[in-house]
């Protein structure tokens, strides 16, 4: 994915600069919970194919809600989500979800957890376990196939969650603050691993985070939401050259400027 041309333009919501059909198109999404609490107020944006788009905004603004609507886990009050040209009416095989709190089955081994998506789809034991072994190796979990989640650290648990999502071979990964429950050092390593993995696997990713640094570091495109009820405040393309050493990226002026400009924008939405 490093060969994708990167534009440093600040696009208006809903435009991507690509003529190609987007992986996800979110149109005028509104969510109102019973009791009249509005979480989303007409959200629109595109997730271009083969790119990583992150959604960032003040805490409690409805980032996770919008992700779960796209996943088909939560119903929108109005508006629609189109994935690969088809309107979303529920969860689908082309989307895989990575949960903030991992959502691993405590009674199942790493192997079974990773293979679980395939198990639900009716794959035979041999087939699903050989696929699972492949992703366990890619996630550096080799040797832990028979461990249970409670024996793993937070970082390892999330790698199991990521392996499970990769194993079902969906085009689209939906990640809900996947590194929020992981400590800072592991998180950096994780971000690098994620980028490496995505460059091999060619997936479209929608990534929810509350960390500006994380968003700028991993994203091709960043959707900034306002305070709840959330609206799209801006869509930014950091346009950072990721070919070099990760440490240099974090020191580059493009990276630092982008972090600064998003912070300036988000600061307006913080509670007084």
């Amino acid at each position: 994915m490093t060969d994708t041309p990167r534009l440093s333009s600040h696009g208006a919501p809903g435009t991507t600069g690509f003529s190609q059909e987007p992986a996800i198109r979110v149109m005028n999404l509104t969510k109102e919970y019973p009791g009249g609490i509005r979480a989303l107020e007409g959200i629109s944006f595109d997730v271009p194919k083969g790119e990583l788009t992150s959604v960032i905004g003040p805490s409690g603004c409805g980032k996770t809600t919008s992700l779960k609507i796209i996943a088909g886990l939560v119903e929108a009050t109005s508006g629609e989500v189109v994935v690969n040209g088809t309107q979303v009416r529920g969860p689908g095989p082309e989307r895989a979800f990575v949960f903030q709190e991992f959502a691993l089955m405590p009674w199942a081994t790493v192997l079974r957890n990773v293979a679980f998506g395939l198990e639900l789809r009716g794959f035979g034991r041999k087939e699903r376990e050989s696929i699972a072994h492949e992703y366990i190796a890619k996630m550096n979990l080799t040797g832990f196939e028979d461990a249970y989640p409670h024996q793993l650290s937070g970082g390892m648990r999330q790698r199991v969650g990521l392996a499970r999502a990769m194993a079902v071979d969906a085009d689209i990964l939906l990640m809900d603050e996947p590194f929020a429950s992981v400590d800072e050092q592991i998180r950096r390593k994780f971000q690098e691993d994620l980028l490496r993995l995505l460059s091999e696997e060619k997936k479209s990713v929608l990534f929810v985070t509350h960390s500006i640094e994380e968003a700028v570091y991993v994203s091709d495109q960043i959707v900034i939401l306002t305070r709840g009820p959330a609206q799209v405040s801006n869509v930014v393309r950091p346009g950072i050259d990721r070919t070099g050493d990760p440490q240099n990226i974090r020191r580059s002026s493009a990276y630092l400027d982008c972090v600064e400009s998003i912070w300036v924008e988000l600061r307006n939405y913080l509670e007084e």
Binding site: G72, P91, G92, F97, F102, A103, F116, L120, R121
Partner: peptide
């Protein structure tokens, strides 16, 4: 736990799979 139910939904569990697994 709600997270496990959501997980089974996201990975397309059928009703009986959700109950049994």
């Amino acid at each position: 736990p709600k997270s496990l139910l959501e997980m089974s939904d996201a990975f397309l569990a059928k009703r009986w799979q959700r109950i049994w697994k």
